[in-house]
Design a protein around this nucleic acid. Structure first.
Length: 378
RNA sequence: GUCCCCAUCGACUAGCGGUUAGGUCACGGGCCUUUCAAGCCCGUAGCACGGGUUCAAAUCCCGUUGGGGACACCA
């Protein structure tokens, strides 16, 4: 059922190259399958002289190989399309297909569930199971996952190993949920499902047969959904490198402020940067469109004076005082609020202003206000 | 080149002979609102093509096209 092959890697490559020129499939040509006694003797002598080491090939019989795939149904292959493949390399190490069959049999594997790219390995492995007298397991071939250009996911797409998704701030539950939905769905197309739910709902009959394109946008959305409902403590742990050594209560407040407006934990780093660093840089455009408008400086001065006297510096107190200020100056609240936001966060967008003020603390708020009005020296 | 798998909105998909072809992401519009999100409401958008079978086809069959996979002394 198997035989020694004396061909060298170089010879095979050369012959493969010749064959490809003639449009013949690149498989093994079967040269060593039917060597005469004399030819074999010559080759064996060469081995003894250590000029060559043989490999062992499986002698593929002429037959049809059929099996039932749990996802794709009945599949049939003609062994003519399979050339005699190597089972033991010349260095004595078994190849994947051979090792795989033996290992799985020894481990009494009943169901082989793997990627679609293995589908053409299956007939080879079945032949080996039969030759070895082993029980053939059930096979299920899952569809592949592609990048946006329909080529297999790779570094080119910014695809990373699973660990780096965690580093980027994706929750494991979201990751599992999203990947599960690539090629699988429930009858009602339910989206958010826990691992247990996924397991109980799974069936091979509902697995898609075509490959799926990995969509980062949807993963991002799903991760955001998980962040919205995740326990505070978990989020705190995940964000500890970003939030640093600040008091726990303060950190929790930050988390709550951002949990509905970030898609990954690492978003916190840039979104909340003005909370995390002493010095801020005012966005150029924000400065132009908000701070440089006429009258803004006066409003800021008035705001500064108002805020100076607020004690305690709470969300409610600051809001109340600034709304009153707007009223007494007879301006729209946003003409007061927007400039303060820019002065204090450096950006035109932020979480609700009064949450920001109270969390930033009076000292920092006044300092940044001063800076916006008078410049750094003041 | 040969063999194999696959085919519904831009993406993930529901559908398994009779549906106004449904949901989710994304996108567009609106509401809410101190900005941004979130939330809520509405909308744009799809059965690759050609033949059959049938009273009736997204659904079954056959081609075509398109996409993918595999053909190693890699796993």
């Amino acid at each position: 059922k198997a035989y020694y092959c004396f061909c060298t890697k170089e010879e095979l490559e050369a012959r493969r190259y010749e064959a490809s020129k003639l449009g013949i499939p690149p498989g093994y040509d079967g040269k060593c399958r039917s060597l005469t006694k004399e030819e074999r003797a010559i080759e064996e002598r060469a081995i003894l002289e250590k000029k060559r080491k043989p490999s062992i090939r499986f002698s593929v019989p002429d037959c049809k190989i059929a099996f039932s795939d749990l996802i794709r149904g009945e599949l049939e292959f003609d062994s003519k399309t399979i050339s005699d493949f190597i089972i033991i390399r010349s260095d004595g190490v078994p190849t994947y297909n051979f090792a795989c069959v033996i290992d799985d049999s020894l481990m009494e594997i009943t169901d082989v569930i793997r990627g679609e790219d293995h589908i053409s390995n299956t007939p080879k492995q079945i032949l080996l199971y039969q030759a070895l007298g082993f029980k053939i397991p059930q096979f299920a071939h899952l569809p592949l996952i592609f990048g946006p250009d329909k080529t297999p996911l790779s570094k080119r797409h910014g695809a990373m190993d699973v660990l780096s998704y965690r580093e980027r701030g994706f929750l494991p539950e979201a990751m599992i949920n999203y990947i599960s939905l690539l090629g699988f769905s429930t009858e009602d197309s339910k989206q958010i499902m826990s691992k247990d739910e996924l397991i109980s709902l799974f069936s091979f009959a509902r697995v898609q047969r075509g490959g799926a394109i990995f969509d980062l946008d949807k993963l991002l959305w799903m991760n955001a959904e998980y962040i919205k409902v995740e326990k505070k403590e978990t989020l705190l742990t995940l964000a500890k490198d970003i939030l640093g050594e600040k008091p726990k209560e303060w950190q929790e407040a930050i988390i709550e402020l951002y949990r509905e407006r970030i898609k990954t934990i690492s978003d916190l780093k840039k979104e909340a940067s003005f909370f995390l660093q002493e010095e801020i840089e005012v966005d150029k455009e924000a400065e132009e469109t908000i701070l440089k408008k006429p009258g803004v400086i006066d409003n800021l001065k008035a705001s500064l004076d108002t805020l100076k006297n607020i004690e305690p510096f709470t969300k409610e107190k600051t809001e109340e005082a600034l709304r009153e200020l707007a009223k007494s100056l007879n301006v729209k609240t946003k003409d007061i609020f927007h400039p303060i936001r820019v002065a204090v966060t450096g950006k035109t967008v932020s979480p609700p202003l009064f949450d920001v003020l109270s969390l930033l603390g009076k000292e920092l708020v006044l300092k940044r206000l001063n800076f916006a009005i008078f410049g750094r020296k003041a």
